[in-house]
Amino acid sequence: MKDTSIFRKLLAFIPLAALAASMNAQIYMAKDCEISFFSATPVENIQALNKAAKPILNAGTGDIQVRISIQGFVFPKPLMQEHFNENYLESDKKPTEVNGVKVDYAYAFYRGKINEKVDYTIDGVTKVTVTGKITIHGVEKDKNLEGTVTVKGGQVLLDTKFNLHVADYNIKIPSLVVKNIAEDVEVKMNATLEPYKK
């Protein structure tokens, strides 16, 4: 009986050890990050680039989160940028609470977890899938991503490309310009992350 007791004690230590390990696990934060989107229609192409986002990765748990400022998207045409913010994403709306959930129109969010085990101590490229949720214009949707994690000289490079269905996010497009804006826009993210120092 005494043996089992020791065994139990040992067993209890495993999660504790895991906890300690995850506490020490490296947090990575983006040094550079480019998020772009592209909408292609026969009438016109719409594209924008955001360099202000800072994705954060917890190497211990695989958690990955990013907050993207909507006003950080820079368009080649300034008027497009104004319309994007004022009429479509409504990024100047005041943050509110709907059923106890905070809604912030000024930002888009992604919160996910990398499903594959990645060894962040060894250089290499790993194809990964991410399970998570995306929030745009106050609307949260399940969104799973595919991409690569590249470990290189202590830095972590994240690359992904995915499509978003505009209508899913309560973004109203007036019938007059419905031909100018694609139903699905392509989003790309390339980020270089470095170990986070407090």
Binding site: A12, P15, L16, A18, L19, S22, M23, I27, M29, K54, I56, L57, N58, T61, D63, I64, Q65, V66, R67, F109, K113, Y196
Partner: peptide, 18 residues
């Protein structure tokens, strides 16, 4: 307790660090 600890740590809001 330690399991709870781990799971809550896993869901920690990394963005608060920002």
């Amino acid at each position: 307790f330690s399991c709870v600890c781990i799971s809550s740590y896993g869901q920690q809001d990394l963005l608060s660090m920002l």
